[in-house]
Design a protein around this nucleic acid. Structure first.
Lengths: 125, 125
DNA sequence: TCCTATGTTCAATGTTTATTGAACTATCGA
DNA sequence: TCGATAGTTCAATAAACATTGAACATAGGA
């Protein structure tokens, strides 16, 4: 009957787990896409990532991203909204997330999954 | 009859492989220790890492670190000298290595393998 | 030349990982 | 209440990974 999935506290976030999470192309794309949309809306629905892989495989990666503390899931009706835990990451590992994100941006042409992230339209009502 | 082990060119270095390499505690400790010693001597012998694991296991991790482009191996007699490929990393992913290293330093107390790195005496003749 | 020290390579093992489809849960709207 | 939608969970599978010890290669010193 758990209303909200488990999230580690800020202090529980571990460096190796974070790096391991970011080393997977699909998870890197999820994080990248969340960061791209951040200036518009800080949240995205699970379904916004369906282009990256099948639903059950995405649920698996979402769980890993939650477990390592990179993102947070909020349940709203039948939707799950995800957002990056930017402040927590910055507090624990200053500059790390930005360094990874800008590295990914720089290599976007080599990371095919990142290409799809550019054109996520935001007509959330 | 290969005199020197294989190393990727700067352009061949891939972000996911680098992050995956750094996500392993033993490999992170190797990179960390190399970075620590950098101001003194830019190189360390393989044997300087024997405290981290067994020799064959270390050879396995060394190979991964070479393959991902994080370090370079130079053969000198019966020794192998390793050094970080700092310039290449900085050129490909600016700020990334430093962000990871300072994150690791910040969490040194939680990364037991990093502790041993502090006391590597440098009496290379 | 032989012995030793330094590392690598190989094979074997057990663990973790990513991926898939099917079954399931829960919520919203008609 | 019924059906559709959004996601999760579970079981199965194949691939990748880390670890170990034994065998091997190479160079240096007695």
């Amino acid at each position: 009957m758990s209303r909200t999935p488990h999230h580690p506290t800020r202090e529980q976030i571990e460096l190796p787990m974070v790096l391991d999470c970011l080393s997977d192309p699909i998870r890197l794309a999820i994080v990248y896409q969340l960061a791209q949309q951040e200036r518009v809306s800080s949240e995205l629905r699970c379904g916004d990532f369906n282009g990256l892989s099948g639903k059950s495989n995405l649920a698996y990666h979402f769980a890993k991203l939650r477990d390592c503390g990179l993102m947070q899931t909020r349940i709203a009706g039948t939707n799950r909204f995800m957002r990056l835990r930017r402040e927590d990451m910055e507090a624990r590992f200053p500059g790390l997330l930005d360094a990874v994100l800008s590295s990914a941006a720089k290599d976007a042409d080599r990371l095919p999954l990142l290409a799809e992230c550019e054109l996520v339209e935001v007509d959330r009502k």
